[in-house]
Design a binder for these strands. Sequence first.
DNA 1: CCGAGTGTTCGTTCGACATCGAACACATTA
DNA 2: TAATGTGTTCGATGTCGAACGAACACTCGG
Lengths: 118, 118
Amino acid sequence: MAAQHRQQATPAGHRTPPVHTDPRDVPLEAALVALGDPVRRSLVRELARAGEWERSCGSFDVPVTKTTLSRHFAVLREAGLLEQRDAGAKRLNRLRRTEFDARFPGLLDLVVNEDEGG
Amino acid sequence: MAAQHRQQATPAGHRTPPVHTDPRDVPLEAALVALGDPVRRSLVRELARAGEWERSCGSFDVPVTKTTLSRHFAVLREAGLLEQRDAGAKRLNRLRRTEFDARFPGLLDLVVNEDEGG
DNA sequence: CCGAGTGTTCGTTCGACATCGAACACATTA
DNA sequence: TAATGTGTTCGATGTCGAACGAACACTCGG
């Protein structure tokens, strides 16, 4: 045993690693509520345009503070909409396209294809 | 002209006839928020099982008072999810299946096929 | 080691909405 | 006409969630 060396601790201000929810375990209500918020839909859309693991949390153009942004990401994660991976100080994101699509066919498409500007 | 006989006035405690919103004019946000509520989804599901114009507002089995129920119906109407028609003292309902489906493909199916009991 | 950068947690505030009871409006029936 | 049934509007209440600032934890570059 003797001082096992902290195997892969928890990076970047994240005492705890990101907790994921499998889309298959997500109730419809959680999905609808998560996507009911305009900021979160904006995040999802931007994420859909980008490649996987390309964007970090802070790289999104939304009119909210860090605190609120962090909360939104947590909600999306719990709704099975995205997966997160720590890379150094940053936390990278990936939209769970196919998995979420399998669980709620058509739903994600509606959001992604939503008209952006007013 | 002379005393035109009130052509089809406004029945049943409804001073004003029901105001409808065409599904094509409904923003995605309104649809998601409307369907985010469990009571409203329950109404939609029950309505999907029944035939058109078969059920009146009061005939639904939901754990809320008349007041709240009336409000929920208004929200569903504004979200383009249902059409209402006055018949005597009652107000009958019809799910706008095909129209809503055309505007938001797949969305209504998710709700209708949702598992009912916990 | 010290700063700057990234993201979370804590505690609070605020607005939106689901809910209710009471009062009202209209229809139907006795 | 009175009584009942159906559905809405009004005003008040309670709860939930979005938003924020400040403090904290961790990484990385000087």
